[in-house]
Structure formats: C-alpha cells, structure tokens
Design a protein around this nucleic acid. Structure first.
Lengths: 140, 140
DNA sequence: TATGTATTTAACCGAATAGTTATTTAACTT
DNA sequence: AAGTTAAATAACTATTCGGTTAAATACATA
C-alpha cells in the first residue's frame, strides 16, 4: 500500500460501508449533530464516532462546534474526486448504450421500412443495410 | 455490516486500492492475461491473483479461458452502479459551480454596465436584474 | 509420458477494521 | 460546585486485508 494511502483510496474506502453511505445521505439534507446521525443505527455512539472519523479523514465531511455538539457537514470535493475518477471509465458503459441506441434506431428504421413495404407494395425504397457497423462487444 | 456485504460496498471496497485501480486502468485498454496484468507491479502472482478475485467478486471484471491463460475483461456495469450512486450527490458540487457562474455572470454584467456608463454618460438603459432565475439542478 | 507455462489454492503473518464497554473530556445548567 | 448532555478516547476482541512462500491444478507441447 502506497504512502499513507492516497486520498482517492481513502475516499473509496470510506464509501465502501453502508453505514457511512447512509450518514452521507443524511448529511446531504443538511448539517447535523453526531447523536442525530447515530439515531437510525443499531450501534453504539463510539462506533458512529469512528465512522465519522473515517469520513472526516477521507475529507468527505468536516466538523465544527456548537456548544457541546459537533455538527457534521458533507464536503463535496472528495466526492467529486471519486466522480472524476469514474469519469474516465464512463465511455465503457455509455458505449454500450450508444450501441443499444444504434440497434434500436436500426430496428425502428427497419420497422418503418417494413411498414412502407407492406403499405405500398410496388414502390420499395432503398433498403436500409442492417448492422452495417461492427456489432461486437455486447453481452449478457 | 449487512448480509454478505452488498454489491455497492463490494464495488467501492474494490476500488479503494491503487493496485486494483491500476489493473482496471489497464483493462480499460482491452482484455489481457493475468501475468500481463501482474508485470507492472512489484508483487507476487498470488497477490495479483487475489486482487483479481476481489475485482471479480465485485463484478468489476470477468474471466474467460484461452489455453492456460485466464484473460480478464473489465465489466462496466458495476462501475456504472458506483457512478449512479454518486449521481445523487452531484448537485452538491455542481451547486458551487452554478453560484460561481452566477457570480461571474453578474461581474460581467456589471463590467458591461460600467463600460456603458463610461461611454454614454447621459442615456442609461434599464439595468439588468441580476440572478433572476434559479440556476441549479441541471447536469450533463 | 514427461516437462514447461499460466494461474490458483493453501497456510501463514502482521496490520487495519468494525464493533464492544468503560472512562474521560468539554460545555451547558442549576 | 454539582449534575447533565454530547461526544471522544481507551482498551479490548474478532474478522478481514494484503502480502508472503510453497504446493497444486490445468493445459500445451515435445
């Protein structure tokens, strides 16, 4: 493992826990106290406190002070970094959708062509070549 | 921790390691063998093999067979799920950009107004109301 | 059939996680 | 000063993680 584990690893690691994601979901609605955050969970305060420490260490939240409370606030930057990383791979799944779009478009055109053929049997338009481009890469 | 740790946790957990992210980066370029994947790293084959098992378990890669090789292939779906989760929070950082946009726009308008004032000192036009509409909520 | 090649499995180890209960710190209230 | 509330820290435990080396498996080829 690299020096002190990089920021991105810390972020993904922090997100890899349902409790912490639930805490973030709550914080997305607005700043709130630790006990308020702890309420929905069947676990001790120290456990929640540790989760908050993980989130804070990853830069996903920050804490201030209000009397004896330590209100937590979500910090979008770390989330954005994770999003930026994923951005690089977005084409991998969008490609598939693009191909699906192509496929659906082709089907639609074909259907329209069939319709036309059925309607006016004597004046066939230039038929659409089906699957003109490489059709590989799809699965499941 | 929930039953057998949910898929999303497994995905984020898998992404929380620089070696595994590097492996995915390589696989984004195309299917390849385990030893090819292992080459750049200063670690034993079994270590890489374990990383691959983690990635496979998270659904981030799949493996086939070609003679004695087990070529690995990146699977975009799991990545998309992670992206979908982040999607919910995207407004949190885009909001800030929106405000910056508003600010820059306001500055621009102000500068234009100042210019106008300086140029023709006697016929001031109706001033633009700044930030008239809500500018949040759009994405991509 | 024996040998080499690609990869996984087994057994082990130290460090990090995620939780617990008990104690302590900090600030407000009386 | 004493008591209450909010949260963190300490100390402990069980499990998981990331790595190791050594042995086993699966396939190809001579």
């Amino acid at each position: 493992m690299q020096p002190a584990t990089d920021r991105l690893s810390a972020t993904f690691s922090a997100l890899a826990d349902p409790t912490r994601r639930a805490i973030l979901a709550r914080l997305a609605l607005g700043e709130t106290s630790v006990s308020e955050l702890a309420r929905p969970f069947e676990m001790s305060m120290p456990a929640v406190s540790k989760h908050l420490k993980v989130l804070e260490h990853a830069g996903l939240i920050s804490r201030s002070r209000d009397a004896q409370m330590r209100p937590c606030k979500i910090e979008a930057q770390a989330l954005k970094q994770a999003d930026d990383w994923l951005e690089e791979y977005r084409r991998l799944w969008e490609q598939r959708l693009d191909r699906l779009e192509d496929y659906l478009k082709a089907v639609q055109i074909q259907a329209k062509a069939d319709q036309a053929k059925a309607a006016e049997t004597d004046a066939p338009k230039l038929s659409e070549p089906k699957a003109k481009e490489k059709s590989r890469g799809r699965k499941k």
